[in-house]
Amino acid sequence: MHFIVCLKPVPKPGAVKVDPETHTLRRESAELILNPPDLYALEMAVALKEKHGGKVTALMMGPPNAADLLREAYALGADEMVLLSDRAFAGSDTLATSYVLSQAIRKLEPYDLVLMGKASIDGETAQVGPETAAWLKQPSLTQVKALWPEDGLWVAVRFFEGFEEEVEFRGPAVITVEPEVNEPRPPSLKRMLAVRALEPRVLSAEDLDCNLEKTGLAGSPTQVLGVFTPSYDREREVLTGEAEEVVEKLVSLLRTRGLI
């Protein structure tokens, strides 16, 4: 079986810079890590491979320096590493990102399932999974907590608010995996050594036969007009002094307002 896992390079929390001109993230300025929720998708795929045979391809759209993150994915159990890197991809919103991923996924045929994280910690849109499925004209299932093959079909358990459902479907399909449904393994030392001699396959827009009107800023229908910090011009009380003193003031203020 062939599982493709999409892993996003994200800026390490706390290290984000926004470009004042384009209002997009300046990814080159921050240290990158594997999007933590994607590790559950990777673990699910690696566990399925170990049980049923096959291989796992780690797929990432990102800058050239994200290659090391793919090596990390290899140490966590992936077998192939594919990096989609091209200036033409810069500034992609979720629609353009999912278009590029879908073009790559087509090149990686045949495959059984595409697995993704639930959401990225920087964008946190949870959109790329179902959008990729739409480009591929395949079924998608979100918030999956368990997945197994049964009589030539797949069975998934997925969460909704207040209930979960067990669904069966025929692959290929795109799955987004709920965080914390498994325990991602630590990296294997043997694999860490082996991957030193390996290079991820790097594919460009041309390699993927991308229509350049659908990638990058040109292919992104959402546009950030600007960013702002909301200001709160309101009357406020500022309490300062010794701890005992401010507690006394606070309690009396809350009492006069009938709040305690």
Binding site: G123, P130, A133, E161
Partner: peptide, 21 residues
């Protein structure tokens, strides 16, 4: 919601539309 987040991006993807989360 779980359902809205599963559905809206499929519609956006199918029609090539922008979607803000």
């Amino acid at each position: 919601t779980a359902e809205g987040q599963a559905l809206a991006p499929r519609v956006a993807g199918a029609l090539g539309l922008g979607l803000t989360a």
